[in-house]
Amino acid sequence: MSAALLAPWPYPRWIAHRGAGKLAPENTLAAFRLGAQHGYRMFECDAKLSSDGVPFLMHDATLNRTTNGAQALGATASPTGGDHPWAALSQLDAGAWHSRSHAGEPLPTLENLARYCIANGYFLNIEIKPTPGVEEKTGRVVGEHAARLWQGQAVLPLFSSFRPEALAGAQETAPHIPRALLLDTLWDGCFDQARALGCAAIVCNHALWNKALVAQVHGWGMRTLSYTVNDDWAAQRLIALGTDGIITDRVDLFSPAAG
């Protein structure tokens, strides 16, 4: 398949990482609002499950880096978000670690972010970031929620994950929502896995892309995206290679209006 036969791609090139990169507490509504103020129309977020099955936004397997979970839930409580119900997680402070001005910012649910994006016409890349051991379940539940939340919308979110099991779970419950395999290295059989999952895109560590690999992935009918691109030289290299999407922390450096 040639690049000319690629399916239409509704998403913009520039994608704000975790809302606004490092300028606001990641994966909070404050971050997505700040990214939007910088002109971004597409965002990347991380979704995992509470112990009672509520998809919420968090990157890490543990709560300690980006919330006051250790203090609020007790030093002897498990630091893993997936071990606590949403009622407890919703009370955590997810902003004070970043700056005093964001103290008290709560963890959002995927539904909170979905409603914000849909109301404003924004696009979303949902990275399925499961707590270890519940990869497929997380994909299934995130798929169920996304299918309900984006029902009837012209443009659906893009799922991505480093874990094929999570993408398989999402494919089971939301086969109509496009999927992308995340790659930090080119492991043996990774592209076969992506094709078996019906992926619409590959999202690579940006240093992995070269002209031949871009052509090969486009030839398979998949789009080419990159993370996390924070330097102008790297962005210009990827644009010259003809890649399709750039995920960045530097919403203050790159203007999405530049193309």
Results as ranks from 00 to 15, higher is better:
Leu5Ile: 08
Leu5Ser: 14
Leu6Arg: 15
Leu6Asn: 14
Ala7Lys: 15
Pro8Gly: 06
Trp9Pro: 13
Pro10Asn: 04
Pro10Arg: 03
Arg13Phe: 08
Ala20Ser: 14
Ala20His: 04
Leu23Ala: 08
Ala24Asn: 08
Glu26Cys: 06
Thr28Lys: 05
Thr28Glu: 08
Phe32Gly: 00
Arg33Gln: 15
Arg33Pro: 01
Gln37Leu: 00
Tyr40Leu: 01
Cys45Glu: 05
Cys45Met: 14
Cys45Ile: 01
Asp46His: 02
Lys48Asn: 05
Ser50Gly: 02
Ser50Met: 02
Phe56Ile: 00
Thr66Trp: 10
Thr66Phe: 07
Thr66Met: 15
Thr67Pro: 13
Asn68Val: 13
Gln71Phe: 07
Thr76Phe: 01
Thr76Glu: 10
Thr76Ala: 13
Ser78Tyr: 06
Pro79Phe: 01
Gly81Lys: 05
Gly82Cys: 04
Asp83Ser: 09
Ala87Phe: 02
Ala88Arg: 10
Ser90Val: 12
Ser90Ala: 15
Gln91Ile: 06
Leu92Ile: 14
Asp93Cys: 12
Trp97Cys: 12
Trp97Asp: 14
His98Cys: 14
Ser99Arg: 15
Arg100Phe: 07
Ser101Gly: 05
His102Tyr: 15
Gly104Pro: 10
Glu105Phe: 03
Leu107Ala: 09
Ala114Arg: 03
Ala114Ile: 06
Arg115Met: 05
Tyr116Val: 02
Ala119Asp: 08
Tyr122Thr: 01
Ile126Cys: 09
Ile128Cys: 02
Lys129Thr: 00
Thr131Asn: 10
Val134Thr: 12
Glu135Leu: 04
Lys137His: 15
Thr138Tyr: 02
Thr138Met: 04
Gly139Ile: 07
Gly139Pro: 03
Val141Tyr: 01
Ala146Glu: 00
Leu149Trp: 14
Gln151Arg: 13
Gln151Asp: 10
Gln153Glu: 14
Pro157Glu: 11
Leu158Val: 13
Leu158Asn: 04
Pro164Lys: 09
Pro164Ser: 05
Glu165Cys: 07
Ala166Leu: 06
Gly169Leu: 06
Glu172Thr: 11
Thr173Lys: 08
Thr173Trp: 02
Thr173Gly: 04
Ala174Pro: 01
Pro175Asn: 12
His176Ser: 12
Ala180Arg: 09
Leu182Arg: 02
Asp184Lys: 07
Asp188Asn: 13
Gly189Cys: 09
Ala194Lys: 10
Arg195Asn: 01
Ala196Gln: 12
Ile202Ala: 11
Asn205Gln: 10
His206Arg: 03
His206Phe: 05
His206Met: 00
Leu208Glu: 02
Trp209Ser: 11
Asn210Leu: 07
Asn210Ile: 08
Leu213Glu: 12
Gln216Ser: 09
Gln216Cys: 03
Trp220Gly: 02
Gly221Ala: 03
Gly221His: 01
Ser226Gly: 06
Thr228Asn: 03
Asp231Thr: 06
Ala235His: 05
Ala235Met: 11
Ala240Ser: 14
Leu241Cys: 10
Gly245Leu: 07
Ile246Gly: 10
Ile247Pro: 03
Thr248Arg: 08
Thr248Ser: 15
Arg250Ser: 13
Arg250Ile: 05
Phe254His: 07
Ala257Glu: 14
